[in-house]
Design a protein around this nucleic acid. Structure first.
Lengths: 216, 216
DNA sequence: GTCAACAATCGTGTATACAAGAATTGTGTT
DNA sequence: AACACAATTCTTGTATACACGATTGTTGAC
């Protein structure tokens, strides 16, 4: 539990939203949350204000807070931006790679290989996250890294759905291989291009996403 | 004044920060702000929480809020990301351009031409903002548009400094011309490339930025 | 004269109280 | 039976009170 209740609540509620414990469109009652977490309404409100600022919920004046429902089209737009940012991170990584970053990428890439070979999509989900974070970090742009991590968090639930699609694990991993090669070869443009197509959801992958979102 | 005091305060304080009325590193005392705006500490705190979530200030537990000082290097990183997002917006605009967007771009481009010819850097500053917003809108990605607008806001003070540099007005406008041509020609890749270099700050423009930031 | 410890003061964090606006339910009328 | 209006209830928005931690100033010792 963080040093002040407000922060802690923010993280708690944010996780609850991202793990779909609070479903999109659901109303978040301040009093209910307060009693549920055993605190007063004040820190609850502060947490909600922050989540509103981040864009996870919407506070309609005098009418309470609701969890934002992005909808398939907006999720697609978010992936589009994510692809662009990851592409930039990859091209920077290729140019600025140092020994520590190289090792971090190699390590997480290795873990991905294991989970992919085992067909363990849950494990791959986590290892994949570490792999991408390693690339953000290798780009040596703190601001870009923060933006990437934040957007990655918001897309987490959908990413998870995607991995369930047949064969996605092995194709994802082979794409990783090409990305790693490009970064290690110092080919920024290639790394950018590969990451953009790896992260973006084109063609049939978009219908997969829509289908899995509708299934909930 | 917005419907609730919290929102209003958030905008008010945000503007004060972006217009450098509160300088970077400055401490924001809740009680002082409350009396200054004639409200209680509660809405002030809520405004500060939101600004913290956005990244404009930092709230250190039990030690108050301070205005974040990005520093030249971080500002550079922010421009780097901005360039990438604008590039994406431009490429989307080229692909998805419709009549309304085309007219909006043409109109704001025309206003830029006038202010540039008149050498009026303040007028150009506003017209330029409208021009870029027209491109965001033409991309038809609400999420991307929001991200662009938000980052554009945060970079506003530095952008303003940049325009003061000698000859920047005319070179900026001629770059606009090329961008408009690419978008109207439907050449997404070219629009992307041109916007990236237009927005990014490479070479001597970076030292200009550092110099003007140090001058304050 | 300088450094350390303690005390007083100041500011933040949380709870609670109160006011005002929305939503809901009940009643009356058509 | 259905719709409209009114009253009540519930929830949000703001203010205030209180407690705890941090900061600063002062005093004493080395």
């Amino acid at each position: 539990m963080s040093e002040n209740v407000g922060r802690w609540l923010r993280d708690e509620i944010e996780n609850s939203i991202l793990s779909n414990e609070f479903s999109p469109g659901e109303r978040l009652d301040e009093t209910v949350l307060a009693t549920r977490f055993g605190v007063s309404r004040t820190p609850v409100r502060e947490a909600l204000m922050q989540l509103d600022a981040i864009g996870l919920i919407e506070i309609r004046p005098r009418r309470g807070a609701i969890v934002i429902d992005p909808g398939p089209h907006r999720v697609y737009e978010m992936f589009e931006v994510m692809a662009e940012l990851e592409g930039l991170a990859g091209s920077l990584a290729a140019r600025r790679l140092d020994e520590a970053s190289r090792e971090a990428i190699t390590a997480s890439h290795g873990r991905c290989e294991k989970s992919a070979a085992a067909g363990d999509s849950d494990a791959y989900y986590y290892d994949n996250e570490e792999f991408h974070k390693a690339i953000y970090a290798a780009g040596r742009s703190e601001f870009l890294e923060e933006q990437c991590v934040q957007l990655h968090r918001r897309l987490r639930p959908y990413r998870r759905l995607q991995l369930r699609v047949r064969n996605r694990l092995s194709t994802s991993f082979s794409e990783h291989c090409a990305i790693v090669d490009a970064i290690f070869a110092g080919d920024g443009d290639k790394a950018r291009r590969l990451l953009r197509t790896h992260v973006g959801i084109q063609g049939e992958r978009f219908s997969d996403l829509v289908a899995s979102m509708a299934a909930r």
